[in-house]
Design a protein around this nucleic acid. Sequence first.
DNA 1: ATCTCACGGTCTGTCTTTTAGACCATGGGG
DNA 2: CCCCATGGTCTAAAAGACAGACCGTGAGAT
Lengths: 125, 125
Amino acid sequence: MTAMSDGEEIVFDQPCPIRDVLDRIGNQWSLLILEALSPGTLRFNALMREIGDISRQMLSRTLKQLEQDGFITRTLYPEVPPRVEYTLTELGHSFLAPMQQLITWADSHHRDIVVARRRYATDRK
Amino acid sequence: MTAMSDGEEIVFDQPCPIRDVLDRIGNQWSLLILEALSPGTLRFNALMREIGDISRQMLSRTLKQLEQDGFITRTLYPEVPPRVEYTLTELGHSFLAPMQQLITWADSHHRDIVVARRRYATDRK
DNA sequence: ATCTCACGGTCTGTCTTTTAGACCATGGGG
DNA sequence: CCCCATGGTCTAAAAGACAGACCGTGAGAT
């Protein structure tokens, strides 16, 4: 029974909020999930299909974190089969702006990065 | 001699540049290093001291990736003891803008996140 | 002269995180 | 009756991160 050791969160008052926030949203899954939810509410399996290559466990875990941090809400409809909907909160929405900047940057500089990689590879030869 | 198996990079033409970019810069170390370099050039150990809790290995590896992707340049002065300087490229600098947005967001919403976490914890009780 | 440290990394062994895949109960469609 | 979809959790195995030892050399302290 070592699983689910989630509850324990260390709350040393981070002198650096950037670190604290980056630790949570500074991974591809969080960003991809938030992006996937930006058009609107999605269910668990819909999210999984949308993202494509995320495992159920990571999706579940990351959603839980995002909910915990107030980025999304989780609504369970006690039907059968169960229906669970994930939706961005206001906080989540407010995060979309800087994230979109990042995505825009990525989009417009992706080419440069590919070129840089290619040159690095050939220079090494 | 199995080390240095770097050369092999799979170049399937990513339909989604966001994924490609996020995979690289979507981790705290990359962002922290870029932030540390934003005021100007730094040497290896200076970076290590600046960031504080990064291991030599991860610093080395992440720097190599950032260099490979064209975010920074690595300049080795063949003195003794060796001196190695890391500097942001133009691409690296251009990335600071969206990153700064992210940091600003983090800074101004950190409080909300902490509150959300606290409430989540008590609601669970 | 010797002792030790700093330089910029790499290598090794351990620990943590991520993954793939099985499993759960139930209800609907074939 | 058989099997799939729902939203997850659990387990075991693979991948990744970490701490710490190690490298050779030159400078400063002793």
